[in-house]
Design a protein around this nucleic acid. Structure first.
Lengths: 235, 235
DNA sequence: GCATAAACTTCACGGCGTATAGTTTCTGCG
DNA sequence: CGCAGAAACTATACGCCGTGAAGTTTATGC
């Protein structure tokens, strides 16, 4: 390959700049502002030049979704790990708070991941970022796993079966938590739903027309989360 | 006014047709498919003719959001009322199930209401349909009110205050349920979040990459909903 | 030094919202 | 009836968008 490493390096740098500029446009103008022409304008290029790096605008958007989703997953994973494992309730609170905080700091990123990302965008099969999504769900399953000794008795009549879940998720979850039953994964998904719902209503401005303190609402949600997981509350 | 009623009638008919065509386009191609040109094409008109009926595309979209949101509110209200008041648990289940069913039958409508509706759309102040949103929330508050005698003891340390809520919501809620404390409204909003989260993850296809039976997940959610509301379960 | 491939530009097409100006058609009044 | 005026609609144009085809420059490897 010789000095062709130079070409590759330049190429990688340009690719990175395209993504950087695209993310900046998104942050300031929402996902809709991610247009090839605007990116090119910002970079002093022609819009068509971008086609040398991404086959289509949807490809670029898919890549961005993956990156942003991965950033979210990193963020919540990190929050989880910075708190000692001794108190599950605190770890759970840290995870959920990190989730909401990330969404409020990166509302446009949240929309990109979970909303209709961009005009006319059609996701490739199975969604653009199932891996990152599963990382998030795995994190939630870790919540459930940490609390399962306490929570178990609350979900004894749960009717879930391994076949109710996506194999791709189970491949990540079952090896990590070998003793966990299907009911715990179902619980994790439901918790995902609870948090996603409150946060997305907030990010999209729907909650704002009902309450002036979504923060307080989320705190009460955290309290109930701890209850759902059967973790003994500390006063 | 004389026979100018004719003009008005024609005008109203054309307005209705624009909305009908727009909704049909949305149902088949998603909110993105709502374009003035496509509507006009479908109606054998010029795109600019629509400007005689709606000042701008955003105005049309706002009207559609109101209509669709109202349809959703009607749907859940109706489900609530078709079930006798004798068993709160069944009424609650009916309401929540109607919510999810409506969303699954009208996924594009759900996206229109709760997602980024359409490329470049900017909602007018306070969101386009706060009234319909508050109708939904009022319905949820009715859930909480119906169960409050049972639920009360679960939320005695709730720190909510009337000032935590939007006056527009309280105007609808407080007269209807004079004895209800702020904690019950907070509970209603949290339940809204729970249901919205599960349903929106499902509608946007995120749940599908994790579980093969979102239905079952929602059923378990219903069971917990009944618990949250402290309603005695029937086996 | 030169053939080749990669990077990039130019031009073009159709789609979008919408502003402006012009045309047709209907209404109500004398 | 005839005719002003309003209402409904069309025509044209501008600047956005994604993207395809073809041409040009620039760096690479032999």
């Amino acid at each position: 390959m010789g000095s062709s490493g130079r070409r590759e390096r330049l190429r990688a740098e340009t690719t990175a700049e395209i993504k950087k500029v695209a993310l900046a446009l998104m942050a300031s103008g929402g996902p809709d502002a991610i247009t090839l022409r605007a990116i090119a304008r910002e970079m002093g290029m022609t819009a068509n030049a971008i086609y040398g790096y991404f086959a289509t605008r949807d490809d670029l958007v898919t890549t961005l979704i993956n990156d942003v989703y991965t950033a979210l997953a990193d963020s919540v994973d990190a929050a989880w790990e910075t708190v000692p494992a001794t108190d599950p309730a605190i770890r759970i609170g840290a995870w959920a708070t990190a989730f909401r905080t990330w969404a409020l700091v990166n509302p446009q990123g949240f929309r990109l991941i979970y909303g209709d990302p961009v005009p006319g965008y059609h996701a490739p099969e199975g969604g653009p970022a199932p891996d990152a999504a599963r990382r998030v769900c795995t994190g939630l399953t870790a919540l459930a796993a940490a609390a399962w000794p306490h929570a178990q008795h609350l979900y004894e009549d749960s009717a879930f079966d391994w076949s109710d879940f996506d194999p791709g998720l189970l491949d990540k979850v079952r090896p990590a938590f070998p003793d966990l039953p299907p009911a715990a994964v179902a619980l994790a998904l439901r918790i995902w739903g609870h948090l996603h719902g409150l946060v997305s209503l907030e990010v999209y401005g729907h909650m704002h027309t009902q309450t002036t303190s979504p923060e307080k609402l989320f705190q009460e949600e955290l309290a109930q989360l701890v209850q759902m997981l059967g973790v003994p509350r500390r006063s």
